[in-house]
Amino acid sequence: MSAAVIDVRNLKTHIVTRWGTIKAVDDVSFTVAPGETLGLVGESGSGKSMTCLSILRLVPRPAARIVGGAVILDGEDLLEKSEREMQRIRGRRVAMILQDPMSSLNPVFSVGMQVREPLAGYHGLSGRALRSRAVDLLASVGISSPASRLAAFPHQLSGGMRQRVVGAMAIAAPPRLLIADEPTTSLDLTIQAQYLRLLEELQERYRLAMIFVTHNLGIVAKMCDRVAVMYAGRIVEAGPVEEIFRAPLHPYTRALLESVPRLGESAEWLTAIEGQPPDLAALPRGCAFAPRCPRVMDRCRAEEPPELAIAPGHSTRCWLHAPA
C-alpha cells in the first residue's frame, strides 16, 4: 500500500465546560491511504465528528482545543500550520461533506456562484472557461441538465440534488482527503443508494482517501475498507471491515453489531446494550465501557486498557485480549 495521505497520531482534543474538561478526542491514531475508505463509527458524543473537525482545525474555539498529537497530511503536520496556511488547505487538500446540505450551501447565492467560487480560487479560472468547468463539475456528480441548474438556488433543488452540489464543491480541487460526515443521513433510502454510488465513483476517479463518519453499520459494510469504532473519545477497536464484522474483538463492537435488527432474522428479541451512553464529564476510572460491558472484570474498573495489536492492522482497547 502506498504512503498514507493522512496520518493522525495520538490526537487529543479537549473541551472545557463548566462541568469540567471533556476529553472529546482522546489519544486517537489512524491512517488512510489513497483510494482507501476508513469508517469512523460511534454514537453521538463518541468523538467522531470532533476528530474530523480537529483534522481541519475547525474545532469550536475557545471551548475546544487540540491539546496534543499530530495530524500529518502528505508528510506535513497540520497542527503546526498557521491559520493562513490552513485556509489554503481546507477545501483544496482536505474537503468535507456534512450531513445537512442546506447548512453547507448559501441560500442567497445561485448554485452556479457557489460552484464557481472554489473553481476560481483553486484553478484561477474565469469567464467562459470557469463556466464550462462548473458545468462539467455538476455533470460529474450526476446532475442532469447542469447548464440550466447553474441559475438555480439551493431551495429549488431536492435534498439529493443539494447534496450532489455539495459533493461537486468538495471535489472541485480535487482534494487528497475527503471527509464525509453522515453525508446521507438526511436522504431517502433510494437517494442514499445513488449518493453512495456517486461517492464510490468519485473516490475511484481521484484516488481520494476518504473518512466516512456514520453510525449506520450497513453503510460501513458497503463503503469502507477499514473501520475504527469510537466510544467516549477513544478508538476502542480498529481493523479491516471484514474482520471486524466477522469476529469483533471489543465487547462494544460486538454488542453494536448484535443489537441491530437484520433483515431475514426472525429473532423475537434484539440483543440490547444495557445502560445509557457515557456521561463524558464523569467517565469512570478504567475502561469507559465497563459499566455497560457484559464481560467486565475487576481490572476494567481499575485500569484503562491500552491499545493492543491483535493481528496486522487490527487492534483493540480491551483487557480481554491482553496477553496473560
Binding site: 433510494t190 443508494a193 464484522f245 433483515l263
Partner: peptide, 17 residues
C-alpha cells in the same frame, strides 16, 4: 435492497433506482 445488509461481502445484488 437499499437497506444495506450488515455484511461486507453481500454487495452484489444492489438495485440503484
Amino acid at each position: 435492497s437499499a437497506a444495506l445488509p450488515l455484511d461486507p461481502g453481500g454487495r452484489s445484488e444492489e438495485i440503484i433506482l
